[in-house]
Design a protein around this nucleic acid. Structure first.
Ligand SMILES: [Mn+2]
Ligand SMILES: [Mn+2]
Ligand SMILES: [Mn+2]
Ligand SMILES: [Mn+2]
Lengths: 221, 221
DNA sequence: AATATAATTTAGGTATACCTAAATATAAAT
DNA sequence: ATTTATATTTAGGTATACCTAAATTATATT
């Protein structure tokens, strides 16, 4: 059995790897909220367990078995988030924090029961894909909402789940995954965007728009 | 926040206190599956935190705040056991093991949601009482099934939850909490009992009967 | 190419929670 | 009342996972 810490490291390494590409000691330290020196120590351990390959001063990469475990933890996390929302009505801004703890104590048996209860879902409440039992994950290629130009429509794909208060804010505005939107206008100098959701215009700061990913971007007819 | 270890100690201390009365270093070590020397170390820590009172060589007792926390952990444990059974169909011989891990990661918010979902239940799948949110617990006074004499009827109150294979066995025979039984005969020399459950005679070894508690013992008319 | 800056690692240290072996206190037996 | 057996504690040690401060390496700047 792997420790909770190791599981969290693998999960975060996977996350950084699939967004930024390169996983550095500092980026890990930042996301995990611990000192870089501590990360170095843990990377040695992960390397000894053949979960990552680590060239000194050159960052880490998950091995095949490291990736497998990372995806298992991510599957746990996302299934739990969706389960908490669907079965117990936990609002979407609170499920992440709970899942962060539960992911480490979920047995395979309960995982399967939750998966079945939910009808084998493919994405969590924030739109992130849920890896399958055998470790397959569908990584859509998304664009950042902040970069979409006026006169385009799109579909919200994912919303970052790390800031609960931002999620509450976005929820009130209606920025849920799978929602259709049209970018009406974009102010210059990193200014706000006017976005049409269900025929209502919402104003969204560009900073916040950085945390929203969209797909199916098309010019409006 | 208290560690998982501390929570488990308090829970087990409560358990021994309410069955055997006196809580010794060795009894704790036995139930927790660790060395007595390790228990001594932890008891010092618990004592420093004012969760127990500890006179050297004389065992421990929970303080008021220690009792409160023990009951909180027990509430978590038992609510989770019942929830897993009711919401996810986990069989009663497997819920204990899961609850042993989940009890430490359950937030008060989710606890309340589960409690509400279950309709504010008062006992878990093995018949143990669930403490209320404010730390009240109804300890019925039960008799041990092994000690009931022939010609008496009784109601099954609790079944020990620690041995999964025994639970499976007892489940097949129909020994669930709240089941009415009649003791038909009892063989001497610690021999087996003939027990009538729903008009069928079941034969139960006396050793196993030690793990079943009953209430409402009355002479059959 | 030399130097300054930033990232990373090493060294040494802390807290938690366990362990075994040895010492000591309590309880039981003679 | 001694002796013996058992329970408990002390002493010393391990593994995990973090920390800060200092040293080292890599990268960027001039
Ligand atoms: Mn999440
Ligand atoms: Mn986590
Ligand atoms: Mn239990
Ligand atoms: Mn536990």
């Amino acid at each position: 059995m792997l420790s909770q810490s190791i599981e969290d490291y693998l999960k975060v390494i996977y996350d950084i790897q699939s967004t930024d590409g390169k996983v550095t000691t500092t980026s890990l330290a930042g996301k995990l909220g611990i000192a870089p020196a501590s990360v170095t120590g843990m990377l040695k351990k992960l390397s000894a367990k053949k979960l990552v390959t680590h060239k000194k001063y050159q960052g880490v990469q998950l091995t095949e078995s490291g990736t497998k475990i990372a995806l298992e933890v991510i599957r746990h996390h996302r299934l739990i988030e969706l389960y908490l929302k669907e079965a117990l009505g936990v609002p979407w801004d609170r499920v992440h924090e709970e899942a962060e703890k539960w992911e480490h104590v979920l047995s395979e048996d309960i995982e399967d029961r939750i998966d079945k209860f939910l009808g084998h879902p493919t994405s969590d409440p924030h739109g992130s894909p849920i890896p399958s039992r055998d470790g397959k994950i569908i990584e859509r290629d998304c664009s950042c909402l902040a970069d979409i130009e006026p006169g385009h429509k799109a579909v919200i794909a994912e919303v970052s789940d790390h800031d609960a208060s931002m999620l509450r804010y976005l929820g009130e505005l209606g920025f849920y995954p799978e929602t259709n939107i049209v970018i009406d206008s974009v102010e210059p100098f990193n200014g706000p965007m006017k976005i049409n959701i269900k025929n209502k215009i919402k104003i969204l700061g560009r900073e916040v728009a950085r945390y929203i990913a969209v797909t199916d971007v098309k010019k409006v007819a």
